[in-house]
Write a protein that binds this DNA or RNA. Structure first.
Lengths: 337, 337
DNA sequence: TTCAAATATGAAAACGATTTCAGTAACCGG
DNA sequence: CCGGTTACTGAAATCGTTTTCATATTTGAA
């Protein structure tokens, strides 16, 4: 409970000098510095962070917005970013918007209240026009998100290409009736993937067929449902592209249960290269996303913005995705990596 | 960027009155209250959180310590606790200790610096004697952890019983050579489970056999390794108890790959009832842990401690675990729930 | 009618640091 | 030996609130 004043008194110096030592400012003689450090140790002194923040107008805290943490993609994002933040001396406040615009808007006040130095949005629930005014209070960086109107940095993955290579892989395997699964968030991630999916189809002269499109598939349970919807079709697809490994796993699990063999009767490709892709039988072909790199870059950009104090500039950083072929799409069980 | 002073001026009142309105203090007339609110809206005013914290000595922020977030158990813990915290107007700072005592100790300074009002430990890396001194600066609550010496509240699950019922289930299925897997953290969770495991064996007059014990199994990869170690034994086990669904999944995946049928040749029981238990083939018998309830209770206790300011008192809250029987332990494929 | 309690308001102190400003001592080139 | 940097130190202002204390008015019970 000791303050800088106590340290100053004990060391027989002024608050100013103590502060200089704490913050590694120049112009402190070596003997006084020793005195201060000894006094600090003796008292077990640690600077009060609120006082510091108030005076210096920075908190060394960053808010990270995610829809929810349980989703393994976001778990990994949070994990990676927390590590990167800790390395730079920043703390991370987690904000789960749970897909609610109101919650998102509410958390945005952290910026206005100056409780955080910046906000990383790994999920956008409001129109950009609604969020933009908050730029008057601090930087906003988009991570794994993208908005045409947004005049801020955006660190993202090349989802169009990711979906493209996954779909193309299915086409190369000879599939022509390919179903398409996505979760229909208002996020641009899903729409970019749809672009890539359509692009691959187009290259093979195949038209996108709405009866094969399932835009409400988020979890493994949805995968199970979709499986039944697919086989109920008059002309069922022979392959399915999904926007998440969980959905892919759900489809495969249900297929297994009903004696539908994967990939012979139905090829399945997931997205995200989660642990489950190697545990399922068959193992799941998927698209690897370099979440670590993206998280690190987003944090790096954020810190740069905090320092430069220029928030309103569009910048795009994009990372490539990689197809990982496993058993769920190739008939002979020797998947080639 | 407007301050309380600006609001006061615009409303033609004092800072004090504005502050009273903000904090819902009594003794403000209705007309002045209206004036203040209007002025706040007009200026888009929001109180500065550092100033608030400095003066009122509370931050409305709680630190949650976990070893890492990617582990689904901790993901769920974080998710549940963040929701509970948000409901109570608290923010959550995530601290990943990554099993490092130094990192843990370092994060503990958040309490000393008064950057957080309290610390929830869902993981302990240091001896309690090392952590105890921090109680002078704020409350510490253990969540899913337990320490004989710790004089603080502990919200936990009955791991002894959880392991006991899982093991007993295997014994009832006729198994007598039962392998035992755990991750060897210094956490008491694993040791409590071992107690339960041994207790069940003892009831059936079976001695704990060290050759069947694998104490370095954390992930699915470890499960694969353990599988091979088990079948290499001269007298391999017919069943295996694991401390995590991931390890169980790894074992099953590898068993599948090598034509070892589960549960006929090897029965497997997991722990935690993660999503993967329903996706694997066979589905995995496991122990359900009421993580939500535990997280909510831990937060509730934390808030109570923050208010009461009495930190140094031992209290134990325990929640029961439930066995969920699936295909990985019962031969006829009709698992009874 | 009176006086204590309840209601309503504001001036100023306090929270604990950093930053600005001013001042002194030492050093150094001409 | 003088004037101007450079090195070092501290007093006081400042960050934006909440809290304490003082004061004025109104209410209500005796």
């Amino acid at each position: 409970m000791s303050t800088i004043e106590d340290v100053a008194k004990l060391a027989g110096l002024s608050r100013t000098t103590v502060s200089r030592v704490i913050n590694n400012h120049p112009y402190v003689s070596e003997d006084k510095r020793k005195l201060v450090i000894e006094a600090m140790n003796q008292l077990g002194y640690v600077p009060n962070s609120s006082a510091r923040s108030l005076r210096s107008q920075k908190t060394d805290v960053i808010a990270l917005f995610v829809p929810r943490i349980m989703n393994p993609f976001f778990s990994q994002l949070v994990e990676s970013m927390e590590i990167a933040a800790a390395e730079q001396g920043y703390q991370l406040i987690i904000c789960q918007t749970r897909y609610s615009p109101e919650k998102e808007l509410n958390y945005m006040n952290l910026l206005k209240m100056k409780q955080v130095d910046g906000v990383v949005l790994a999920s956008i629930q409001n129109d950009w026009k609604v969020l933009e005014p908050f730029l008057d209070y601090g930087p906003i960086v988009l991570c794994n998100e993208f908005d045409e109107q947004a005049n801020v940095p955006s660190v993202m993955l090349d989802q169009v290409h990711g979906a493209y290579i996954a779909t193309k892989h299915l086409l190369e395997q000879g599939h022509r009736r390919i179903a398409y699964c996505r979760g229909s968030t208002r996020s641009n991630v899903a729409s970019h993937r749809e672009l890539g999916f359509r692009k691959a189809l187009a290259e093979y002269g195949i038209e996108f067929d709405e009866q094969y499109a399932f835009r409400d598939a988020f979890h493994s349970e949805d995968g199970r449902r979709v499986f039944h919807q697919m086989i109920a079709l008059s002309n069922p697809p022979t392959a399915v592209f999904t926007g998440s490994d969980e959905v892919a796993a759900g489809i495969i699990s249900e297929a297994n249960k009903h004696g539908c063999s994967v990939p012979e009767q139905l090829a399945v490709v997931g997205f995200d290269n989660q642990e489950i892709t190697e545990l399922m039988k068959p193992t799941i072909t998927t698209v690897h996303q370099p979440v670590d790199k993206m998280a690190q870059k987003a944090l790096e950009v954020m810190i740069e913005k905090i320092h430069s104090r220029k928030y309103k500039q569009r910048e795009v950083y994009e990372f490539p995705l990689k197809l990982i072929v496993r058993e769920s799409t190739v008939s002979n069980k020797l998947a080639k990596l």
